[in-house]
Design a protein around this nucleic acid. Structure first.
Lengths: 229, 229
DNA sequence: AATGGTATGATTGTATACAATTATCCACAG
DNA sequence: CTGTGGATAATTGTATACAATCATACCATT
């Protein structure tokens, strides 16, 4: 996140360090490791059958990703997400997803456009049925698609990072059927604006969408299931 | 950047790894290490009088910062900044500095406001005299001040990262006296808008300022000295 | 001469040993 | 009973040794 973050997409999947990194990242994002949990190099090394060296290197990367905080000579702790952080991220995403949607109007490929349409129509089905798991997946995919269609590696990567980051919180917030349906309707609006190459509208709708997702999250508080954005 | 990037501001300044990290970072930003230069663990370790271990850990962090790219089993190479990257960053900064300036209207402290005014008036003096070094420093400080006054750790950190990142390019672009004077006049406009707590104006001016800096950079191409933004 | 393969050296990846630092706990004084 | 001190254990920081991988060069074969 370090920020902008031009790192390669695949954090060398096949090195021990890469495996450790991805594993811990998943465990934090999925909630297996909770806020303020202490991660010990030896314990994790033994669990994954590797020595401390790759674990340490993975820790350094996770720290820059903002997932853990390393206190020198003391330990590594899973960072908490404060309400301020979430608020800040949504504020930033609000602007940048608008920008992203505007650029998508000019740069989206046919294949991406097609998948986006498919996504919206499929999601409509699942939203009405109350299939939350599928909704969650489709919702995530919609946003990733949007990011990929803006034709800016920097912007795409930044937005994916943030999106990934707030997943931790979204997975704890309550999702209602009403919000799911509304969220998907908003997706549809964005999708159609992009299809019509209406940059102004696409930007406006994407910004509004993020703002609404945040309002809804606040309104419902942090509960059990998850949050559609 | 990593991205959002919640990492501690001081990358433990007193550990060997922290020192190696800061040193290499400086060397890349200052241009001592150039694009595609290969960084060897042993060579750097010997130069700084440390073993490979802290060097390797520093490398991992630098990779996430986007300053180097590590090719597994091969080596670490200083990443180049493409014109697309620069364009993307200015596009993103344009939006976010606007947001930042708007927030500054509500959150800037008295001390920060005072330093900002001082900065503008001092810069005006140096701009007219053609003191480029002082201008460069004051310009950087103005933006950092702006970032610090928005009262958002996330936004502040993100903008500082980007600002730092493009320094590599800015230090190679030509700065004219005309642009220096114009740039500082823009700073003054932003500063006054913030002082008057005119959020709309501050956002508009800050966005425009970044856009103009980018246009100017394009117009002049990448030359010897540096670029005021 | 061109190509292919093998040997060799250089460099990174990983594991382990040792040093430094921090936390814990118990004894003991007040 | 409380608080301080130091010994001890646990954990991270660093250095080094070894394994794996990659690049290069040289020689053999065609």
């Amino acid at each position: 996140m370090s920020n902008y973050d031009v790192k390669q997409e695949v954090t060398d999947k096949y090195s021990l360090r890469g495996r450790v990194f991805n594993r811990i990242r998943e465990d934090i994002l999925s909630g297996r490791y909770k806020e303020n949990d202490e991660l010990k190099e030896i314990a994790i090394g033994e669990e994954l059958g590797v020595s401390r060296t790759p674990v340490r290197e993975a820790f350094r990367q996770l720290e820059l990703e903002g997932l853990i905080q390393i206190v020198p000579n003391k330990g590594a702790y899973v960072t908490g997400i404060t309400m301020d952080d979430v608020k800040d991220i949504y504020m930033i995403r609000s602007k940048l997803e608008g920008l992203c949607a505007r650029r998508a109007c000019e740069h989206i490929t046919e294949a991406q456009m097609e998948e986006m349409e498919e996504n919206v129509y499929l999601a409509k089905f699942h939203a009405e049925k109350g299939h939350f798991d599928q909704m969650f997946a489709l919702d995530n995919r919609f946003h990733e698609l949007l990011y990929e269609s803006c034709n800016s590696k920097m912007l795409e990567h930044l937005l994916k990072d943030y999106h990934q980051y707030v997943k931790r919180v979204r997975s704890k917030t309550l999702s209602t059927i009403e919000r799911s349906v509304a969220s998907n309707a908003e997706h549809q609006g964005i999708m159609e604006a992009i299809k019509n190459k209406d940059g102004d509208l696409a930007e406006k709708l994407a910004t509004l969408h993020v703002d609404k997702a945040f309002s809804n999250m606040i309104k419902n508080g942090l509960k059990e299931v998850y949050q559609n954005d």
